[in-house]
Design a protein around this nucleic acid. Structure first.
Lengths: 123, 123
DNA sequence: TCTTTACTACGAAACTTTTCGTATTTAGCT
DNA sequence: AGCTAAATACGAAAAGTTTCGTAGTAAAGA
């Protein structure tokens, strides 16, 4: 399975979010603090296409790109890797540590409880 | 904050686990499928010391190394980065996706429920 | 003291990732 | 058809990571 690098992940996120987009669109969505040139974004997307992460179609004078790799599969790949590396292969431990962060609201907690109830039924 | 690379993370995990260790100890703990030489491990640990991730003390003819960076802080750094990159900055969403993996047992579920109950009380 | 051996230091090669300058192509306009 | 602006292609530099060969050092035993 293909493991995107950090810069690639940033581009993938945009494409998963916005769907088919031109290089220009993607470039404009990138956070300003990166301050990388247009050709950098283009080159990245070309490399990603070579690697089979993206595909593209001709449109007008240029191309539009879209992701081939699936959002969920990629996320799961990273979650597994992280749980292997840092949590003894236990996704549950990973989840618990994630919940220790600020930013977890009461609504999040309720939602998680519901999810857990359903999981328990399913077992 | 210092963001360890993959190879560095592998070494850090060992040191968090085993505590102060010689290069030899760490090298022997590395999974065999890596098949990297002793001097590679040594060099990595020297670099990590330069970067301020590790420190070392003289002992016998060599040194023993130990981690400076805190296990929890480093894990949280990666969790935050991942939730920023892939889950719109929501650790809760990250946790939910992690729970979708195989390997989550009923015991995990119960433990998580307890954790959530306590979090709810604490709010 | 001399030798052996375990360990360290240094430097550089190999590889990957990220960046961009420059040249080229092409669609659309006049 | 010729011109312009937008986009692509190409190549290579820059930066970061990983690997290891070789040489040097120093402690422990002969």
């Amino acid at each position: 399975m293909i493991k995107p690098t950090d810069a690639e992940l940033e581009i993938l996120s945009i494409l998963w979010d916005k769907g088919k987009s031109s290089v220009k669109d993607v470039h404009e969505e990138l956070p300003e603090e990166r301050e990388t040139g247009y050709t950098t974004t283009l080159k990245m997307m070309q490399i990603m296409t070579e690697k089979g992460m993206l595909a593209r179609e001709k449109q007008g004078r240029g191309h539009i790109y879209y992701p081939i790799v699936k959002e969920n599969e990629t996320k799961n790949l990273f979650l597994r890797k992280m749980s292997d590396m840092l949590f003894n292969g236990s996704p549950a431990k990973l989840a618990m540590q994630a919940l220790g962060q600020e930013k977890v609201t009461r609504e999040d907690i309720d939602e998680l409880k519901k999810l857990l109830d359903e999981m328990e039924k399913g077992k």
